[in-house]
Nucleic acid binder design. Structure first.
Lengths: 218, 218
DNA sequence: TTAGTCGTTCAGCAATTCCTCAGGTGGTTT
DNA sequence: AAACCACCTGAGGAATTGCTGAACGACTAA
């Protein structure tokens, strides 16, 4: 369940989550959230702390599901102490990769049982979401946060062609104002760190975008 | 639904889309777009960013359908960050092939389920729109963007005779000023790259045009 | 404070792509 | 056979696109 009073944020999150295979319901304020949650029984709630009627933490108390809070970057310090065990938070403005990563982390912790491996693997490139580790050809590679998010997005969409605009939309914060040049820079960093051996996995499709995939045999 | 205030663009797009089997409704400004969309419930909206009354992004917010934006080549950089997930954009001046390719891509992403293969095949020549790959006689072939668009147009119209004027209208931008000589050049490139083995698939019909088809057995 | 990391921008260079043009080829007409 | 025509293709210059090193400020840890 996605709870936010701004329609643009609500749409952004629900479209992105639906695309990733989640079933999504939404609510625009605290009372609606409580009501919808009672009927829909969500596995997890993405909840803006700042709602027009109720405080996000109050809403969380009335709902029996783990919560991922959305909070303004300033108002964090004093609030995060109020998190229940199992909950987590993301600051606005966020990137979709960030939100989805946190959602998966919360669900993983919650559904303690049969923990899914949470490892992505393409050829001899491996990424462990949980441990935040990346391995290429048996060697561990250190990545910065943005490099990690970008590589994760590539690996989660291995074989699919991704435009620079798509990458910008998913990996960078939704309010990022810069141009696609920064994507080129980070692809360059990734190539140096994790794609400096054969077979090359990150391929440029000129004036289209990039793909991460094992090159075809022929 | 096609939304643009210039009648020439509106007609160009709606004629081309109708010919390809889409049902099309049109609108000339933002308010009309919102109204028409409410009644017609389009699966997708092709929307000029620059409208006389409302901003294209505002219109998009008021319509519950994925959007393919049409934007001027300059005004892209700062705007593409404003796309919602699932949306896409094409810069003016565009080619009809370009627009149709993007439309198909958006619809494919949106109707997540039962994704159609999106593969074209003629004899031992195969083209995968999604992966942007081309294979001839089991070998993968690398094509430039224009070569790819041209081959796609040929394969989507396999067996049909295409005049150079038709090809120019579909594959090249609508403001292209040059002559048909460029089509000859690109047909030549294609022949070298994908039609260098038997059976020959691209045939010249002198003073008529070209056809892509498997030659009859006899 | 200092050193280090990170995110971002930018400019110069490299690679690719686009298009034009002109000479050559081969078919068609006179 | 000669003249004409449509077409093919190689060459090359211009433009576009992408890559990467360098530099900057913000931030963090020691």
């Amino acid at each position: 369940m996605v709870v936010d009073d701004e329609p643009s944020i609500r749409d952004l999150l629900s479209a992105s989550l639906r695309f990733s295979g989640f079933e999504v319901v939404t609510a625009a304020d605290g009372h609606e959230a409580v009501e919808v949650a009672r009927r829909a029984r969500p596995d997890l709630v993405v909840l803006d702390v700042m709602l027009p009627d109720l405080d996000g933490f109050e809403v969380a108390r009335l709902i029996d599901a783990p919560v991922l809070f959305l909070t303004a970057r300033e108002a964090t310090e004093d609030k995060i102490a109020g998190l229940r065990v199992g909950d987590d938070y993301v600051t606005k403005p966020f990137s979709l990769e960030e939100v989805q990563a946190r959602i998966r982390a919360v669900l993983r912790r919650t559904r303690a049982e049969g923990a899914p491996a949470s490892k992505l693997k393409v050829a001899d490139l491996e990424l462990d979401e949980e441990a935040r580790e990346v391995w290429r050809a048996g060697r561990q590679v250190r990545l910065s946060p943005t490099e990690f998010k970008l590589l994760h997005y590539f690996m989660a969409n291995a074989g699919r062609v991704l435009s620079k605009a798509q990458i910008l939309d998913h990996v960078w914060n939704y309010d990022f104002g810069g141009d696609a040049g920064v994507v080129e820079s980070y692809v360059s960093y990734l190539r140096r760190k994790v794609d400096d051996v054969e077979p090359r996995l990150i391929h440029t499709l000129r004036s289209v975008g990039y793909v991460l995939r094992e090159p075809p045999a022929g």
